[in-house]
């Protein structure tokens, strides 16, 4: 067992974990962050994507012990304190960018990170940027449109978030 201290969505947690425990298991099973989902066992689908010190990672390809001393933001920590949606969340709703919603937490977290890396992406850059996240429902067109809307919204807001 290893002792870790991790900040998840603004709360600090201290836990004993098995060294082999994946971050996604830690988030779901120990911290109760079931908003983060698991879609595969080969790190292909991106359903488990979270922000690790502000940068998107697939939490199934990170060990919980690697998160010791770091900050993790999940889909559950993205909206404002009063429930105000993040512009990417709002855009996914406005553009009908989700159907079953299973890929959605990962898609949203990856999109947030993508827009930090590249605030004004072209359509091709968005598609390239989401290459590691699979969606079986939407055919991606509305996801691309949502990221475009969010880019505009963030630009208008001065990229504050």
């Amino acid at each position: 067992m290893a002792k870790i201290t991790v900040a998840v969505d603004g709360t600090t947690y201290q836990d004993e974990v098995e060294p082999r425990m994946l971050l996604v298991q830690y988030l779901r099973e120990k911290v109760g962050k079931t908003g983060t989902l698991v879609g595969c066992d080969t790190s292909n689908c991106g359903a488990c994507t979270v922000l690790f010190d502000g940068v998107s990672v697939k939490s199934c390809s990170v060990l919980a012990v690697q998160a010791d001393g770091h900050e993790v933001t999940t889909i559950e920590g993205l909206a404002g304190i009063n429930g105000e949606l993040h512009p990417v969340q709002q855009a996914f709703h406005d553009k009908h960018a989700l159907q079953c919603g299973y890929c959605t937490p990962g898609m949203i977290m990856r999109s947030v990170s993508l827009l930090k890396e590249n605030p004004h992406p072209t359509e091709a850059e968005i598609r390239e940027g989401l290459n590691g996240n699979l969606c079986r429902c939407t055919g991606y067109q509305n996801i691309v449109a949502a990221v475009q809307q969010a880019a505009d919204a963030l630009a208008t807001a001065g990229g504050a978030r």
């Binding site: 079931t34 983060t36 949606l85 969340q89 709703h93 406005d94 009908h96 989700l98 919603g101």
Partner: peptide, 19 residues
Amino acid sequence: RTRKEDQHLITGHSTFTDS
């Protein structure tokens, strides 16, 4: 109409069976 279904899915409050 945008969907009534979305709110809990975009905020991580989903109720998938494994959760």
